[in-house]
Design a protein around this nucleic acid. Structure first.
Lengths: 347, 347
DNA sequence: CTGTTAGCGCTTTCAA
DNA sequence: TTGAAAGCGCTAACAG
């Protein structure tokens, strides 16, 4: 990484504006004007400069230009996601990219794996690279460490979980009401013993989804049965084991509500192994690819990661462009998609 | 994007090394030494500088530092993938990230959607931002446009498809032999009428996978039946329609070989719709999530995107560190994973 | 061990 | 319409 290679490993120096200017026989500033599309350059000189740029294969250096430029923008944004390889994050990333690239903005991305310290380190790494804005799916519950960045002009938008202790826009899904809808759907099919399987309770959205589950039950005057509630399922093995344990109960649940897509998949796997996929109802929060192709199809409360990413990027660019309205929270609704597993009646 | 906000929208200027130096009562160079972990600073001053950095919440500006630094490295790499939201690309990205982040390197990523001009534009955008290296899953069949970048010291590694007209390392899967293995697996089950469903023939890997299919048949002294070969399936709708058409043939195939994961999924969907998923055998190239959870499980020739990404990043960083051996092509083998669909016997 | 000076590639400011 | 000079934040090369 730090081997001194000299300018270019083969000793070839990158052409600069000076080189272009010399070749075109104009001043450096004229080249700058052409490169940035500023007015006030005669067609003749503009032509000559363009030719020289082509001939030298000149690429302006954004790092250098943003140094002196007003506002110091780099046309770069950073994206901090839970895990770029999970379908939800991947869809968000693609949506952000689709808003950014047409504006000539490039996007950095990185995965947080629910690690708060990683969130701080990576946000710092991006700000060291002077990203104009940051879109963060927070792993920590306090973004105040970004205060000085925000004061210095870096725009921050949080997705999935609300920005905490920082004046920033947030884009959220209807975690509680979506979950309520999913559980009510099971209740409507006649289920009275509905288990809840959730991620770590330290995660706000996991808590919100549990709240939604609880609201559905109490709304139907059904008691909460602690035996049927399993929190803190942070990996698929734990989730599968939890399903097995639940179904071995003297009074087992007739339906499961899984509050996250990895848990849903684990539940499908466990039910399959037990040969119970056609008899135990299942509704999952968060959609996933091929949910319609397994048998039975998996009923889910779907988020819309594409809409979330697009909205986050749109808001971000409005802020970068100078929008100074007070920070707002935007809600992207979830949708119940019945596919079979959630319509199984209690046995 | 170009609204002049002044330095920081709230008028707050980012602290610089000068500010830190002034606060710590040392020279700018001493701060630089501390920030870069260079030796030759007394514990006392080092302490004072660190305190000032903390107090001001100072973040060094990599853009500025790489300007003068030998080699001009930015600790940034660019990743050009087919589509960050497809599972293959997403896994590659995650693997690259896992090699890069621990080295303090951030990664840009972007999707090409098989568009050659987009490849050039985005590669240019990354080089304008002075990425130290580029990992590219090429959409074009000619990377010579990167020649001047490479001469100037930017390292390029191609994955999935070999670098063309450019001296660069490539990381490839066993497309031909992997396909041969998959088709042989069907032949071994007794199939004699095996259809081929492939992506655009302009894509090298699509061609290679077809070659593998052909080799398997000729190796078993079986004739190639043009009726059973469908190329240029560039979306799922086309692929589903192709499957339906194939099965309506007077002498329909008893097995399908799909040369790409989206085609495989489309085939599963079509077979399901026709109620033929238990009677028509299917082997797909490229694995996908939940391939084991559909019924029957889908037999695939799996690539190892994680290994590919990790190897690409490792090679890239070796080159950046100064490795000057001649460019090499690295092969990451595919694996046949039997799950049920490929073991169905001809009816 | 510490500091000074020059200059990276570019934009700004101001003069012609 | 064009250009010269200054300086963005930092590191290199060289003093002390």
């Amino acid at each position: 990484m730090d081997v001194p290679l000299g300018p270019g490993r083969d000793g070839e120096r990158r052409p600069t504006m000076r080189d272009v200017a010399a070749l075109a026989g104009v001043s450096l500033k004229t080249v700058s004007r052409v490169v940035n599309g500023e007015p006030g350059v005669s067609a003749l000189l503009s032509q000559r400069v363009r030719g020289a740029i082509e001939q030298l294969d000149f690429r302006p250096n954004v790092g250098a230009s943003s140094l002196r430029r007003t506002g110091g923008r780099t046309s770069t944004v950073g994206l901090l996601l839970e895990d770029v390889s999970n379908p939800y994050s991947a869809a968000v990333q693609r949506a952000v990219e689709d808003v950014a690239i047409p504006r000539g903005v490039m996007v950095y991305s990185a995965s947080l794996d629910e690690d708060p310290s990683r969130e701080r380190e990576l946000a710092r790494a991006f700000s060291t690279r002077r990203a104009d804005g940051l879109i963060i799916a927070p792993a920590s519950d306090d973004q105040s460490y970004l205060a000085s960045e925000v004061r210095a002009g870096t725009v921050v938008v949080c997705i999935d979980r609300e920005a905490q202790a920082l004046p920033a826009d947030s884009i959220l899904a209807t975690n509680a009401t979506g979950s309520t809808e999913g559980v009510r759907h099971l209740i409507a099919s006649g289920h009275r013993r509905i288990a809840f399987l959730g991620d770590r309770r330290t995660i706000v959205t996991a808590q919100q989804r549990f709240d939604g589950y609880r609201d559905a039950l109490t709304g139907a005057s059904m008691p909460l049965d602690e035996q049927l509630i399993v929190h803190d399922l942070y990996d698929q093995g734990l989730a599968e084991a939890a399903v097995v344990r639940l179904l071995e109960l003297p009074e087992p649940p007739t339906a499961l509500f899984t509050a996250q897509n990895l848990l849903t998949i684990a539940a499908v796997r466990a039910l399959r192994r037990l040969g119970r996929e056609q008899t135990v109802a299942l509704v999952g929060f968060d959609d996933f690819p091929l949910a319609d192709l397994v048998t039975p199809g998996i009923t889910v409360v779907a988020q819309d990661p594409t809409a979330i990413g697009r909205l986050a990027a749109t808001v971000l660019f409005e802020r970068i462009a100078g929008d100074t309205r007070p920070p707002a929270t935007h809600i992207v609704p979830t949708t119940l998609i019945p596919r079979g597993s959630g319509e199984i009646k209690p046995s």
